[in-house]
Amino acid sequence: MAPIPIQDTLGMLGDNLERRRSVLPISRRRATAWSRGLEIPARGPTVLYTGQMYQLVPAINAMTHRLSGMEDSWMAGYFGLARRMNRLVNLAGLMARGSPQEVREYNEALRNIARLLLAAHVEFGYLYGVDRYAGALAHDEGLDETLQRHAARVYEDLKAAGVTEVITVDPHTTNLLRSVYPKIVPGYELKVRTYLEVLAALAPKPVERLAEVVTVHDSCLYARREGVAAQPRALLTESGVTIHETELSGKATQCCGGPIEMLFPKRSNDIAARRVEQLAKSADRVVTLCPLCLANLRRVGRPGVEIDDVSSYLVRGYCPRVPNGGAGAELTEPRHAAPAQAVAGA
């Protein structure tokens, strides 16, 4: 009986980042599936940079599920072998495919984010195959040499594509591109804002009032490092949502346990369960701002408590629906009829 071995698990994920440019490599088709039909241009000075975080969640969930079955079991002893095999075939990718329903759901969140930006007349491109995982795990686990090399390659790709500004969608990619890369990539120069900051600055008019009561689970990275807490609240409130704040919110937020989900699944679940209990005291609808928080809090869940990504609220509040579309109707892809907002100046 043994815990998840740190050396081989981190070794395997680090090997993947070095060799396959992601800790859990997924195909280009899967990474870009969310954008189908949105017809986002393949380039532009401003791009929506997903960092593949939403796309990776189903794979991370599947991996975490497998690892938690191995924690404190005889199987933990075979990680060394698994790591050696993973150098030859993408074993981690095979172990972590994720459920089709989850894949659809997390892709939908990205579609919602793109729709919100389009509805606010923000001009942006999407780099498809070049929109890569930014290296959050390597940074957190102290794999600095691996991260440095990876970051340089990510930046090179962005520069080669002529990008000067990125709009990010999650706290981990935001923190890396905005606060970590400038310290480790020579000559780094890129404007980085989250879609929540971009939207809040534009203050779009809601198209529907959402008479709902929620509580917000802040991401540690957003609230304590990147100053993102007021913007999602302003957007939610403006669209009619009432926020019942939990005691530990904003800069005092309590972590969801996500950062240790792979190495210490049980400990991570305990922290998530405690957090869900705290949040449930304020409202039975919880809004998350990060795909990893969403996954981790949902994993433990609680009967009667709904946990959803902030984009699923905002898209209803700010994006028009097709006329006569009933329940589940496809949201319109806004046309660029109105003059596009200059993002850099927004």
Binding site: I6, R224, R225, A252
Partner: peptide, 12 residues
């Protein structure tokens, strides 16, 4: 080592 790698880097 387990303790060092358990930290969430949450900054609380």
């Amino acid at each position: 080592t387990d303790t060092v790698y358990s930290c969430l880097l949450c900054k609380m």
